[in-house]
Amino acid sequence: MNSILVRHKWEPYVWLLPSLLLMVIFVVFPIIVVFSLSLSHISNAGVVGEFIGLKNFAAAVTNPAFPTVMANTGIWVVAVVGLSTLLGFIVAMALNANFFGRKIVRAVVVFPWATALVVQASIWNYIIKYEYGNLNNILLNLGIITNPINWRISYQIEFMWECGVGIFVTIPFVAFTCLAGLQSIDAVNYEAATVDGAGFWKKLRHVTIPLLRPSLTISTVLNIIYVFNSFPIVYTITKGAPAHKTDTMVTFLYMLAYAEQEMGAATALSVIGFLILAVVAGAYMMISMRKEEAR
């Protein structure tokens, strides 16, 4: 009897062990290394030297581009996560409806998400190209414009394009997460709401959204992490140019590390990014779960 209890007590840990080992080797260990590097002097050639305290952090936050990069990162995460969640939810509602060709539409919607981000970003780079871009070609051929338009006339506009591409590629993920949630809502809830005289908006507010909250929480938390860490879109379209004005934190630290050989400041920045992400994602999870428990 005792041996069975002991076995049952340890069994979950035995099954978890391979995953835990992988996490320690590929996640925890690199994090520890980066934390250690962020407190060490790293030369331009990459030689790791002595402990220098928080000097790398000071170098990172006093970089003239740092405030712009932080503001960009905030706009990037809020715009991409916020708008893709809103639009993804609308797409999910549409895909949940019964209409002819629904399966084909679902397959098409997943394309942007299923394609590699760098491919997506490169395609959009060609679409908005001034000289031979598809967008200008189509508009010229349709006679809507007579001269090509420079769709990248300023860095602010370029950053808006980057956010747009980010939203475009994120919508499918939100849509399918929400769609899974919508399909798990029992039709009885809607029937009861109908009997109570609820219209579309009331059903949406009092039935759909509350019951979809777990799906939305998961998609939002994962999206915050994915979008914050997203590298290919900004790097492919502008590489942060001009002078880091379109960089987000991840592309900025990459450019610091590999274009500017400021490896120390880059590791410090990656630690800052990790902590921000841990706090934001953790706080969002806690708030959402508390609301759920309160319900």
Partner: peptide, 17 residues
């Protein structure tokens, strides 16, 4: 040189904006 190379590019790009 590595810092100068990066620095002059930043100057140009800042001047462009």
């Amino acid at each position: 040189w590595a810092d100068v190379k990066v620095g002059v590019i930043q100057v140009e790009q800042n001047a462009l904006s």
